[in-house]
Simulated scan of single mutants.
Amino acid sequence: MALKKQTVWLLSMLAVLVVLSAYYLVQGPSEQVPVASKSTNEAAGIPPVPANDKGVSVETKQVAPQPEGMPATTPTDDYFTGYKMQRDAQQEQEIGQFMEVMSNSDAKPAAIAEAKKKLEELSALKDNQTQVEELVKSLGSYKDVVVIARDDMVRVVVQTETLKRDKVVEIIGVVKQHMKVPGNNIVVSYKP
């Protein structure tokens, strides 16, 4: 009976993944979020400002405007929704892979244990991302927030007209506390 439940769950997740992938291919985010780097800002003559005594630099940067050829009527909400859907689809695909290993009767116990561990880590990451998005929204009354964590880097994009340095420091503090990532591995940007 448990195997049937896992199979139904896996097929349901794969169906969701297919629907999300199709939606993303048709709609997609209206543009890519550039990652602010020290070299980019230093080349533009913008020196980093220390946020605290731990050597973390804070740089505010607006996400680039829509590239030419993109419809100007695309709402900003689609931008955030697209990134959240892309992130969720990728995570669901990884979950599907882990579930496949765990339900494979030919898999070695070590591989099953590793897949279970990775699945638990990914579930915790998903919960943390959602929790941090809600906490950041409440910090500055932002309309929308997207948190994307990959490897040891976390990118946070908030929907606001401007983003002051003290708010960036506040956002970095929340992300550090809840996602256990060093401050210099967190990139915060904004989009109006």
Rank of each mutant, 00 (worst) to 15 (best):
Y23H: 07
Y24D: 15
G28M: 00
P29V: 02
S30K: 05
S30V: 05
E31W: 00
E31R: 05
V33D: 02
V33Q: 01
A36L: 10
A36G: 14
S37Q: 08
K38A: 15
K38W: 11
K38P: 11
S39F: 07
S39E: 15
T40G: 07
N41I: 01
E42D: 14
E42M: 08
E42A: 13
E42K: 05
A43Q: 14
A43C: 06
A43K: 12
A44G: 08
A44Y: 06
A44N: 13
G45F: 00
P48F: 07
V49T: 15
V49A: 12
P50D: 13
A51T: 05
A51M: 13
A51F: 05
N52D: 15
N52A: 10
N52K: 02
K54R: 15
G55F: 03
V56L: 02
S57Q: 13
V58D: 11
V58L: 15
V58S: 13
E59M: 13
E59H: 09
T60I: 07
T60W: 01
K61V: 08
Q62T: 08
Q62R: 14
V63C: 01
V63I: 08
P65A: 04
P65R: 00
P65N: 03
P67L: 01
M70G: 04
M70A: 13
M70Y: 06
P71W: 02
A72K: 09
T73N: 15
T73G: 14
T74A: 12
T74W: 00
T76H: 05
T76M: 05
T76A: 09
G82C: 02
K84N: 12
M85T: 12
M85D: 11
M85H: 02
M85P: 01
R87Q: 05
R87M: 01
D88R: 03
D88G: 03
A89P: 09
A89T: 10
Q90E: 11
Q90T: 13
Q90D: 11
Q90G: 12
Q91L: 04
Q91F: 03
E92V: 10
Q93Y: 10
Q93F: 12
Q93G: 15
E94G: 06
E94A: 13
E94Q: 12
I95S: 03
I95W: 00
I95E: 08
I95M: 10
G96L: 10
Q97T: 13
Q97R: 10
M99Y: 04
M99V: 04
M99D: 09
E100G: 10
V101Q: 08
V101M: 07
V101K: 09
M102Y: 03
N104G: 06
D106V: 04
D106C: 01
A107H: 01
P109H: 00
A111H: 06
I112F: 07
I112E: 12
I112T: 14
I112V: 15
A113V: 04
A113W: 02
E114V: 00
E114P: 03
K116H: 11
K116I: 01
K117N: 10
K118C: 04
K118M: 09
K118V: 00
L119W: 02
L119K: 04
L119D: 04
L119I: 00
L119R: 03
E120D: 14
E120L: 06
E120K: 07
E121L: 07
E121W: 01
E121I: 00
E121Q: 14
